[in-house]
């Protein structure tokens, strides 16, 4: 991203050379997705497969993961990097266990979205764009989430939280801290969305 000063912050990434592979079950799911597109157009599956990969391999896309996906879909690695850097839902660096994305666009802004973000910054003691030192929360200020009628809204790991108030945020942070202590419910993973 740029900031008002004009400086662009892009990191040069490195290949670690770690072995990356989907489990046989996930791989089967990936092949089901690939088959949805005509012969020779397996590249079409790139976006959904990257979603699955991101969730499977720690919440972000490392160079190793992207190279694996490139191989899987018969693409050049750069073709995957180009795509992964274009879309805002792919993370290139490890985020916290919970990614909190607070909408800041128009309708949310006039309905208190900015206050909500401020409150989260104060509660978590981090700025938007940062991750808490314990690795639990990443806070992000994001653009329109398509939920303007229930503004202000945010998503936590793609789950919507709407008509937010500071009271609700307090409860939610508490609940997430508790949830983090136990095994996570995986029913809303990308993999499960496709039948």
């Amino acid at each position: 991203m740029t900031n008002i000063s004009g400086r662009v912050i892009h990191k040069q990434f490195e290949k670690e050379g770690k072995t990356v592979a989907f489990s046989p079950e996930t791989l089967e799911k990936v092949h089901t997705l690939i088959r949805r597109y005509p012969e020779g157009y397996q590249r079409s599956a790139l976006l959904p497969v990257l979603h699955i990969a991101q969730e499977t391999f720690g919440g972000y896309l490392t160079v190793d993961v992207m190279d694996y996906i490139a191989e899987l879909l018969g693409l050049l690695p750069i073709e995957v990097y180009e795509v992964a850097t274009f879309y805002s839902m792919y993370y290139l660096e490890k985020p916290g266990k919970y990614v909190i994305e607070v909408c800041q666009t128009g309708p949310c802004a006039i309905s208190g979205g900015e206050t909500i973000l401020q409150f989260l910054e104060d509660s978590l003691k981090i700025k938007a764009g940062e991750t808490t030192p314990d690795g639990l929360f990443t806070l992000k200020a994001v653009e329109c989430l398509g939920s303007c009628g229930t503004a202000p809204v945010m998503q936590v790991n793609s789950r919507f939280y709407e008509k937010l108030t500071t009271e609700k945020i307090i409860l939610l942070l508490e609940a997430l801290r508790e949830e983090a202590k136990i095994e996570q419910n995986t029913s809303d993973r990308w993999e499960e969305q496709f039948s």
Partner: peptide, 29 residues
């Protein structure tokens, strides 16, 4: 007829029909 759901990944521009097609082909929008 077969109907499939294809998710995007965070890009308003993919609502533009040709950007959408590019994205659906697994490319930048």
């Amino acid at each position: 007829l077969e109907i499939y759901v294809h998710p995007g990944a965070g890009a308003y521009i993919c609502g533009e029909e040709t950007a959408l097609l590019e994205s659906l082909e697994g490319k930048r929008g």
